[in-house]
Write a protein that binds this DNA or RNA. Structure first.
Lengths: 215, 215
DNA sequence: GGAGATTATATAGGAGTCCTATATATATTC
DNA sequence: GAATATATATAGGACTCCTATATAATCTCC
């Protein structure tokens, strides 16, 4: 007996909706890329590299974050290298490997292209504060699930960070604590890609998540 | 005075999160496309065409729905035509125009490629019923906002349909009414792309939306 | 210490996406 | 009927994206 998809399942409509928003985000990225001379994939690589410091990332890591094959990542990295937006450094201690690091020009282009308003802002403008906060929490849950399933690499989210203590404070507006900056913060400040992220070991990661969910 | 983006704004993190989920959806689409011999863009076109009947869509409409330029749409349509997945019919009454219609083979490939489980299902599995329903509502709001801004074409959603009467019933589980099927239905059944959609005129659309929001 | 397995990246080859600019053939409008 | 607008196609080019394979270096373990 086969398992036909149920057209009445809410997940079907959620997938349609996410797909539609995804399309809009891609249009947005193209718009943003027009002026810069880089296309969305190239901007995505620079965005990934930005804030990752002098160590950069390896080709393989970039491929995983972009969700493309390694040769495709090589292609795009080469395109960016031709445009002097990044350079490849030899990895110390492994002569096969390479560290990809953005150049100052690359970061300048990235910064210039980031206007901060666009379709994403328009779409999110339809939501009030509470809805935005709920959406952030929902996205965090979905992203974490994909990480647990090893479908995507670990993101630099609070919920996987060793500096994160969920619900450490009584204040409902700022229940969480970040030990890196040693400060309390709220649900709406949960990071999706924090440059100070330091991945916790699996056991404490699971414990943190339980505490976060229970809170 | 310039307007620097505030890195502490929640919209920034929401954008990161949406972008990440979008990437996962694209990986998902590639996985799904492997067996079919069609790539994600081609499957997206067939999905768009499916359920739109014998009239099909014009090249320009397809471009708008995909968020790409018209020549790009022509490219992909031609690729699908080479593979006998669709055909172009002359539009009656306008000899410039063309109606793009899927073939039986195209629809069969589409159907076969749609396994119903994948990364989208995995990610959505992290949410309980209530969260899924909230997410659907949130997505509907975002999509509608993008339509109002004319950033994307009108989707076939309940909230823009002339058959839709929001909060017509007292039953909290099934407050809405669809006059097409003449039945009550719930928030979680709100359609994102309904094939029976019939676009309401702007005035009643606005009134419907107000009633929907107020309810 | 070297054969074999593994890992990191690059190359090769090819289909297709995606753009801008422009051409072609109708329609529409005044 | 001329000017304008619309629907699609072509041209040209950069790049994305894949699979399969090559190259080089590192690790493993007898």
């Amino acid at each position: 007996m086969e398992t036909p998809r149920n057209p009445h399942a809410i997940t079907e409509r959620l997938r349609e909706g996410l797909s539609r928003i995804g399309m809009a985000m891609r249009i947005d990225e193209w718009n943003r890329s027009k002026a810069s001379g880089l296309n969305p994939t190239q901007l995505a690589i620079l965005t990934l590299l930005e804030g990752r410091g002098a160590d950069g990332l390896g080709v393989r890591e970039i491929a995983a974050h972009l969700g493309v094959s390694q040769p495709t990542a090589t292609d795009s990295i080469n395109a960016l290298e031709r445009k002097a937006c990044l350079k490849k450094r030899p990895e110390a201690g492994d002569r096969r490997a390479v560290r990809v690091v953005p150049t100052a020009e690359g970061l300048a282009i990235l910064k210039a292209s980031d206007t901060g308003d666009g379709l994403a802002a328009t779409a999110l403008g339809a939501l009030d504060d509470r809805e935005q906060e709920d959406l952030l929490l929902t996205l965090v849950k979905m992203i974490r699930r994909l990480q647990v399933a090893e479908a995507i690499p670990v993101q630099r989210m609070c919920v996987t960070c060793r500096h994160f203590s969920p619900f450490a404070h009584a204040d409902a507006a700022r229940p969480h604590h970040c030990h890196f900056v040693d400060a309390a913060f709220g649900q709406r400040d949960l990071r999706v890609d924090c440059r100070d992220h330091d991945e916790a070991d699996p056991a404490s990661r699971a414990a943190t998540w339980d505490a976060f969910q229970a809170g």
